[in-house]
């Protein structure tokens, strides 16, 4: 456990150290080159700012209105019929839309049911194996001002669904068979 913590802490500094010292060794004027790259960063970030505001407001409204709880209540019975653990439903719904909200829900599931309970483990695996799909698509495509995203949402949501289902099945097989 401590080793994994340590690795995750040193990863970023180590990458920077390796790149900068290699640059020095190859006699590159490292700071000039760094500045040249860093300048591009400003423009990229400014381009995605309006997207972030729009997206965050819409998701903030969605979360605070209580409509997500309502939808969860509506579809839970159907999913539970397919052996889908009821506690996981809100997490599966939120995961593609909001990273911070789904992390909060997952933490709550672990705290309420126990970290090492079946749903606790499933929630952990889902959080580790999936990403905030909608956010990623919105930010990446708006950074180049593209509106036509073809059918990428379908591909990503199917991947998310696969991730959720496999997480449930694999946890059952490995830990709770």
């Amino acid at each position: 456990m401590k080793i994994i913590n340590y690795i995750s802490i040193i990863a970023m500094p180590l990458v920077i150290l390796i790149i900068v010292s290699r640059g020095l060794k190859e006699r590159i004027s490292v700071f000039d080159v760094f500045l040249k790259g860093a300048r591009d960063g400003i423009e990229i970030t400014i381009k995605i700012f309006p997207t972030l505001v729009g997206l965050f407001v819409a998701i903030g409204l969605l979360r605070s209105s209580g409509i997500l709880d309502f939808i969860t209540k509506l579809i839970s019975p159907i999913l539970i019929m397919f052996q889908f653990p009821g506690e996981i439903v809100p997490l599966a719904l939120l995961r593609p839309i909001s990273g911070s909200a789904s992390m909060a829900v997952a933490t709550d599931i672990m705290a309420q049911n126990g970290v090492d309970s079946f749903v606790g483990v499933v929630a952990s695996v889902i959080m580790g194996a999936t990403e905030t799909t909608l956010y990623t698509i919105a930010v990446y495509s708006s950074s180049v001002r593209i509106k036509n995203t073809r059918k990428i949402l379908i591909a990503s949501l199917m991947a998310d669904l696969t991730g959720v289902i496999v997480s449930i099945v694999i946890c059952k097989l490995i830990f709770f068979a």
Binding site: G23, E26, K36, G37, A38, R39, G41, I42, V53, F56
Partner: peptide, 25 residues
Amino acid sequence: AVNLTITLLGMTCLWSGIVEIASNT
């Protein structure tokens, strides 16, 4: 959204610069 943008602004500049170095080595 503003807070995230500020974080991203710093990080994007830093990593764009670091990769610029890396791609010259």
